[in-house]
Simulated scan of single mutants.
Amino acid sequence: MFKRIDIKDVLVILIFLVVLLVLFYNFFVIREIKEMKMEIKHQNDEIRSISENLSILNKKLNSTEREMGKINRTLNILSKNLSDLNATLDKLSFSVKRKTFILGVEGGKGVAIFLETEVRYGNGRLLFNIDKGDIMLHYTVQRAMINAKKVAGKETNLSMEDFDIIFKLRGKGEKMCIVGESAGAAFTISMIAALENKKINESVGVTGVILPSGKIGMVTGIREKAKAAREIGIKLLLVPAGQEIDIEGIKTVGVSNIEEVENYMLY
């Protein structure tokens, strides 16, 4: 005969089993939690290490940026110094020459004297050089050069104190003395041509006093000068307005100021 099972015993067994399951569950859960805590701690340590490394890298980057800033400032200074040096070298090497003729009268005969005007950076000096022939210059010629320099500065809007002007004269070997200011217009136009890097029309010549205002003043010996100009191949001679003449083989045109001379002679 089967023994009757008491319900209380069953409940006790069930309770025991439940407690046992809970104990096993808690054991595994607690172990898992411990492992998770260990993993979290390990990850936190890694994060802390990475953060410290990032901090070190940031410090190095900041230091590098400061060094790069110093290098850039140094490079800017060097670049400016190089630019200044190049500008200085350009000034030292700058030299422009223009050629034309000045016309005069010697012993009742017209003469043409070769004129080369050189403009280069300098200290505002006005110089002249006699290349060939025994040529003497009267102080009135020097006055014409001074007026020409002033007018050239006004026409080009340049400070003539930044340039040296060298007039080179070459005659035919004869002894002569140049007197008067009739070469003033030629001095002026050759300077303007050099300063503005323009060319001079070789078939056009000019004679005339240059006034500080830029106007062209009257001269003497127009016919003799026209003949001398014709002999060296000049086709058109610019003369002070009102002094035009008719002469075979060359045309004369009157001009009132240096701007009109520029229109005829420069291109």
Rank of each mutant, 00 (worst) to 15 (best):
I216V: 14
R48Q: 11
G69H: 00
I178G: 09
F27V: 03
L20R: 01
V255F: 09
K109T: 12
G122R: 09
G122A: 12
E174W: 02
L158W: 09
F2N: 04
G173E: 08
A194Y: 04
E32G: 11
A228G: 12
V10N: 01
M218G: 03
T117P: 07
M36D: 00
I102A: 00
V10C: 02
N201M: 01
G108S: 13
N44Y: 15
T220V: 06
E39P: 00
V29D: 13
M145G: 10
F24D: 11
I210D: 02
M145P: 04
V18P: 03
E244W: 03
L17G: 13
E259F: 10
T74H: 10
K37W: 07
S83C: 10
F101D: 11
E196P: 00
G69W: 00
F128A: 03
D131V: 13
K59G: 12
V19S: 14
R170H: 01
V151D: 07
L78Q: 08
I130F: 01
G124N: 08
V204C: 01
G184M: 08
K132V: 06
P240T: 08
R66P: 07
K37T: 10
I30T: 04
E161K: 15
N81Q: 02
G133K: 01
I7V: 03
I166P: 05
L195A: 09
S190W: 10
Y139R: 12
N147P: 00
H42T: 07
N53M: 09
G233Y: 09
H42C: 10
V119F: 10
T207R: 00
L17V: 10
R230D: 01
M136T: 02
I50C: 00
P212G: 06
R143A: 13
L92S: 12
L169Q: 10
V19T: 11
N53Q: 11
V239N: 02
L78Y: 14
R230W: 06
T64G: 07
L266E: 01
V204T: 02
M1F: 09
Q243K: 05
F163I: 05
L78C: 03
I189P: 03
L266W: 06
G233Q: 04
N62A: 08
L17R: 14
I47C: 05
I189A: 06
A226V: 07
L92Y: 10
K198N: 10
N147Y: 12
G249P: 14
N201R: 05
F28W: 06
I245A: 01
M136G: 08
A228L: 14
K215V: 08
D84C: 14
I222N: 11
